[in-house]
């Protein structure tokens, strides 16, 4: 028998057996629960191997019951749970990442090139100025954030504002350029893109 003055009742195998079998009275239940919640691990209390194993037995029964009810397992001894804050931090990080991607992802990435579209596809020119020879109707897009320029082989030069799109055309053998901002959106002028273009700078990347 073990006596421990913190408990009103003595904890013994019979009381524990009754507790597990749900036949213990209210005072016995309180004594057992106070004893279970005592983490001092006082060796004086646990001098008996039998009592020690009984304490584990009680915990095992509680765990079985709680697991059986499909609730989270109560573990003993209580350890600090690092998983929850880590999961929360990860979730917040993911939310911020998704929000950022949503915010910025609706626009494609920028780059520092002039993009010329002919019937053959897109050509990117990385230089600030280039000379070109063309036929037909081309789209010219200054994708960079700085002013760029193009020069036709007949000597006509055009300045391209940052982020602006233009259409190059030839009328009666003379080139002209039309800013897209002057054209009505309901006119699908990009459908008329045709002809070919030859670029003279060194840094031209053909994406065809």
């Amino acid at each position: 028998m073990v006596s421990y003055n913190c408990y009103i009742l003595e904890i013994n195998p019979e009381i524990l057996k009754r507790y597990n079998e749900h036949t213990a009275n209210e005072a016995e239940c309180k004594a057992v629960e106070d004893w279970l919640n005592d983490y001092s691990e006082d060796l004086n209390v646990l001098s008996s191997n039998e009592l020690h194993s009984m304490k584990h037995s009680v915990w095992r029964q509680i765990q079985q019951k709680t697991n059986g009810a499909n609730v989270v397992q109560f573990t003993k001894p209580r350890k600090k749970n690092y998983a929850l804050p880590l999961t929360a931090a990860l979730a917040i990080f993911l939310l911020i990442t998704v929000a950022y991607q949503r915010w910025t992802g609706s626009y494609p990435n920028d780059s520092d090139a002039i993009v010329i579209t002919s019937a053959q596809g897109d050509i990117e020119i990385l230089e600030d100025h280039c000379k070109l020879q063309f036929s037909g109707y081309l789209q010219v897009f200054n994708r960079s954030s700085k002013i760029k320029s193009i020069e036709c082989t007949n000597g006509e030069k055009y300045t391209l504002a940052p982020g602006e799109t233009y259409y190059l055309e030839t009328i009666d053998g003379k080139h002209s350029i039309v800013p897209e901002s002057h054209l009505s959106p309901d006119d699908n002028y990009s459908r008329f893109i045709r002809g070919d273009v030859k670029i003279y700078p060194e840094k031209a990347k053909n994406n065809v």
Binding site: S106, Y107, N109, D110, T165
Partner: peptide, 27 residues
């Protein structure tokens, strides 16, 4: 108008919105 040139966007609404934002539409 986007950094990649002018792009088309499409959105769906149950009432006529007071404002449409490409960030809430599909590119």
């Amino acid at each position: 108008k986007t950094p990649q040139g002018r792009m088309f966007y499409l959105g769906a609404y149950q009432d006529m919105p007071t404002r449409v934002d490409p960030k809430e539409m599909v590119l």
